[in-house]
Amino acid sequence: MTNEISKSTFTIVPAVDIVETPHTYVVKLDIPGAQKEKISAAIENNILNVSAVVERFNDDQESDTVKEYKREFSLANDVDVSTVDAEYENGVLQITLKKKEQYLPKQININ
């Protein structure tokens, strides 16, 4: 009663939550089972590109299944691409994008 499953690769579009706060956009992606080093997040030409490779190993420590998570986001003009923060915890990748100074809500002083 052994299950012989040959090595296979799946491409997965991870589910995403995006929350806008006055100063940031917080992007959360479900990427269960990844090692931090196997996750990449990059911004190029105002496009945020997230990808991760999750491998599952069999008893002989050979990888038998590979899951490839991939998703792209077009960023709005108000995102400050120079300060992006990303953390991975409990299988969720959280990316915090800050808004540019000139787009932040301002308090106007009344003289």
């Binding site: 589910a15 806008e20 006055p22």
Partner: peptide, 15 residues
């Protein structure tokens, strides 16, 4: 997650 008054969902695919 509970959002504060000045926060809003732009996308919610996670169940």
């Amino acid at each position: 997650p509970e959002l504060k008054e000045n926060e809003q969902w732009l996308r919610n695919e996670i169940l």
